[in-house]
Design a protein around this nucleic acid. Structure first.
Lengths: 114, 114
DNA sequence: TAAGTATATAACTATACACTTATATATTCA
DNA sequence: TGAATATATAAGTGTATAGTTATATACTTA
């Protein structure tokens, strides 16, 4: 069983990005779901620019992909990324965050569902 | 198959530490070997205090353990750490760094061997 | 015990980073 | 087309971080 490797400098760069609670939670959330910016704003009780800047960093490394649907832009983990196999086992060890989305659904502020 | 999880805040803290090229390389090196501070100084061409401070951070989270042997203090990844199962798959995906130790051996500056 | 070697720590500095405020761009809908 | 909503970007600010220099501590050996 050959284990694929990732260049050390690149790995450190990715881990630095994951080393932020907001971004790490984001990735866990959108690993199997999809979320738009305003949902993140509500979940993290953060400002919209702050969320936008976190997503920008993740996008710059190709870790997430975006898709516009009308006025909303939906973000999802990019499973096609050459680094997905690197981050996947990390995300797998994190506790499920779906309760955050359930909260939105209960409040009626979940957008991504439709 | 139950996957153990790690608290998100803790995970982010650990990933932040791993998100530095020097510390990440250190961990990869001492995952299966042991190294003393002066070896790191030579490998990374860094100052002694800089190396010492990196090791301190890793030690504070319990990721490495130290063992004094005479004037030297040897560092090894702490496989007993409750977070070892979290960092192990990450380290496994990094390219082997043993060439760095081979270099020391060839130069005759490897200490940990005896 | 004094000198030499290895390591740790403290204080300082420069840079990186996350966040804020302000503004620009894009889309929807009346 | 104009107002409202969603998102991105730019500029500024405060804090965290990695490195430096200086010094302290611990061990070894002559």
């Amino acid at each position: 069983m050959l284990q694929t490797t990732i260049e050390l400098e690149k790995a450190a760069g990715i881990l630095k990005l994951l080393g932020d609670k907001t971004r790490l939670t984001m990735l866990k959330l959108i690993n199997e779901q999809t979320c738009c910016v305003c949902e993140f704003v509500e979940i993290f009780q953060s400002s919209q620019p702050s969320i936008s800047q976190h997503l920008r960093k993740l996008k710059d490394l190709g870790l997430v992909k975006e898709e516009r649907k009308g006025q909303w832009i939906f973000y999802t983990v990019n499973s096609k990324s050459e680094y997905y196999s690197f981050i996947k086992p990390i995300l797998n060890q994190l506790p499920d965050q779906d309760d955050k989305l359930k909260e939105l659904e209960e409040k009626g502020t979940r957008i991504s569902c439709c």
